[in-house]
Amino acid sequence: MTSSTVSDRVRSTGIVRLLVSGFFFLVAGSSAFAAGCGTSFPAGRHDLSLDINGQTRSAVYFIPSDYTGKRKVPVVFDFHGSNSNPDGQMNRSHWDEVAEREGFIVMALQGSLPGEFEGTHAWNVPGVTKAEGLDEGAFIRTAVHYATETFCVDPARIYASGYSGGGRMLSQYICDGHGDFAAAGFVMGLRAGYPEQEDGVWRPRKESCHPAKPVSIIAFSGLKDDVNPFAGGGKAYWQYGGEVALKRWADLNGCDPHPRGEKGDTATFSAYYGCKAGTSVISYVITDADHSWPGNRVRFRLAALQGETIREVDATGRMWDFFRNSGGELLAGTPQKTACPADKTTAGKEAGLQGKTCSQQVKSDNSEPVVTDGL
């Protein structure tokens, strides 16, 4: 039996119980609440505890200020890297800022392994982690079901992103046949199965990656990343390079084997299109990037017809644009102008960590991604 309790920084939801036998849920409250819609939640970050087979697992979720519980919204799961935690990851990715502007929920989960520093954690990645850890797949699966039962969520718009070790965990979760996510994004962490060596060449073991369905992939890599090198090598869990992983996902998704690309002095963009179920696999390899989340100093231009610039976004904003276009091939369209009132700021854990954002819903630009010159 598995149960869960919600311990919010702003306590408002009471106690919710999950019975995971067949993923049958008993939820206190009205039938509308049981369906995930009809109940509002306070804006900002909230702590979450899930008891899974007697083990307490932790997470943090973010509710945007315009959430009412009356309209189904997307959810983005944010997976931290090794030696980090959910709050640290959200501070790194700034998914809560994008969520506040665009009106969706973010849930950041915590790995079961202790990190090298107090208060930090890592993931027990199947096939490569040589440590005693908990079943991360069961945790992720339960957290997804918890989100769909507790919040007013569109099950067709559940996405995930992973940084470093969190990217490796997310990769393997999808490889293990869990079809929860419509699209997935990776920063310095895309994998396509366990590494194995054959005739001196490292590659993903095909038997270790069997996705339940085609899934759109967007990946960001740095040529100066010496932790998870794009060229391959590194620690035992890594070995095969980022380009090998991308090609493997293109094969798994049934994409056209010939990618389209654009090479510049600061970054290289490549994309595999013509994939099954309208999915795609795209990659940004940033020349001067090391093993860090590409922040505001790395910008991406979203261009409309005749190359007209719509707006610039950072890596997280680019990832969200990819997600909300269902991950498929982005077609040129008409730009949508938005206004951001100066008094609208993100609701967050601590003052000073969040920037100014817009709280209104922003429609998709349906635009072709282009890398800016000023990366």
Results as ranks from 00 to 15, higher is better:
L246W: 02
P211S: 01
G165L: 06
G233I: 05
G177Q: 01
R191S: 13
F220K: 12
V215P: 00
G232F: 06
I218E: 02
G179C: 07
E207F: 03
S221G: 10
V215E: 00
K235W: 00
V227F: 07
G185T: 15
R248L: 00
F230N: 03
Y194A: 12
E243I: 10
R203E: 08
G167E: 06
A182P: 13
Q197K: 13
E198H: 11
A236E: 12
G242Q: 08
K224P: 03
C209G: 03
I217N: 04
K213Y: 04
P195D: 05
V201I: 15
S171N: 01
A245S: 15
W238A: 06
S221L: 02
S216C: 11
F186W: 00
R203N: 03
F220N: 10
G222L: 08
V227M: 08
C175Y: 09
Y194C: 11
S171Y: 03
K247N: 04
C209M: 00
C175K: 12
N228H: 13
E243G: 14
G177L: 10
D226F: 07
F181D: 01
A192G: 03
D176L: 09
W249P: 12
G165H: 15
V201H: 05
A236F: 13
V244S: 08
R203H: 11
S208R: 01
D226N: 14
F230E: 02
G222T: 06
D225V: 06
E196D: 12
D180W: 07
H210T: 11
E207K: 14
V187M: 12
K206P: 01
A236D: 12
R191V: 04
L170G: 11
K206N: 03
R191C: 12
S208D: 12
R203K: 15
G200N: 01
L170N: 06
G189F: 12
A245G: 06
K206Q: 10
Y173I: 10
S208Q: 05
L190M: 11
P204G: 07
G193K: 08
V215S: 00
H210L: 02
F186H: 00
D199P: 00
A245K: 07
K206I: 08
W238H: 14
D225E: 00
S216Q: 09
G185C: 10
G179L: 10
A236Q: 08
G232P: 08
L246R: 04
P211K: 04
M188W: 02
D176Q: 15
D176I: 14
G241H: 06
D226K: 09
C209E: 00
G232I: 05
E243V: 09
E196F: 06
D225Q: 05
N228K: 04
C175W: 14
D180Q: 13
Q172D: 07
G189A: 09
S164I: 09
G189P: 13
W202Q: 06
G166D: 09
P195W: 10
A219L: 01
R191W: 05
R203D: 02
A250K: 11
G165N: 15
V244H: 02
L223R: 14
F230P: 01
K247A: 11
R203M: 13
R203P: 01
W238M: 05
